[in-house]
Write a protein that binds this DNA or RNA. Structure first.
Lengths: 149, 149
DNA sequence: AGCGGATCTCACGCTGGCGTAAACTTCGTC
DNA sequence: GACGAAGTTTACGCCAGCGTGAGATCCGCT
């Protein structure tokens, strides 16, 4: 009796499934891989891409940075690489010197701060926009009242 | 003694000045005009574009729709045209039938609702993103404490 | 009226972010 | 083991959103 060790859907998705989940095309996923943004962590025996949960989360992250914050794919690459390095630190924690850890942690913090500032700026601008839209909605209701009366 | 009646900067900006204010290029302004998005309301005697405050506000609006909400210039055109029609109603108020007014007001309200939903959706996604970033910042502080200790 | 800098109108160029066709292989089900 | 659906690589196509001259014209200041 052999333990299940093989190619069952190990909960890893095929490219088409992953694409559908994230609302993008297969071409887009292959393109992201070409750019080094999202390399699937698994492959089938025949070489087909398999995306696990972490891959999917990364994909969602990419889309957020792209759609919500308006970064281009090059900038997104830089951000992700910075974060990946920090993840490396944690895994090779004992191999890195204290200075290395400090340096990478610092750069991660810098990126984090930048992103938070950007998000906050967007939030503020969106709030302003929302106020304007509500103001307009109010005037529309007035106009409507005029027409009604 | 003649009253100032002529081409003094009437507070209207030249294309380069308007472009700088909005943080775009002259080419961009000319392109927007080509698409019918932003036609300067004045021109110099020689035919040079002059942008007044309303033009500038419209430009800012265009950029917000583009950068904050991610519309392409075609969609932005539709939105602005809808709003322009409503402005027309108000000025030719007596020329429009009640039904026409109702119809245009309704379509303006529809657009307004759509935009508000979109803004709200973006706000929610940004809030979620902000939470994640703050969570990360917290972990970074922990890591830093470990390194410090 | 003349001069430097800003604008004007073509019109072609370019990059990012994929779409898409072609020809071939792999998957998994019967 | 065969067959249709899905996946793979390669490579060219495409559109939005401007960038960038080129060459003529205009602005406004002396």
């Amino acid at each position: 009796m052999i333990v299940d060790q093989s190619q069952r859907p190990t909960n890893a998705l095929r490219i088409g499934e992953a694409a559908e989940q994230a609302g993008v095309s297969c071409r887009t996923l292959r393109y992201y891989e070409e750019l080094g943004l999202l390399v699937p962590s698994q492959h089938s025996a025949g070489g087909a891409r398999r995306y696990d949960e972490a891959d999917l989360a990364r994909l969602v992250r990419i889309r957020e940075l792209q759609e919500l914050l308006g970064f281009d794919l090059g900038e997104i690459g830089e951000i992700l690489r910075g974060e990946d390095q920090l993840a490396d630190i944690r895994s090779h924690y004992r191999d890195a010197t204290v200075d290395e850890r400090r340096a990478m942690l610092h750069s991660a913090v810098v990126i984090n701060d930048r992103l938070r500032d950007l998000v906050k700026a967007k939030q503020d601008r969106l709030s302003g926009m929302m106020r304007q839209l509500e103001e307009k909605a109010r005037r529309y209701r007035e106009l409507n009242a005029e027409l009604g009366g």
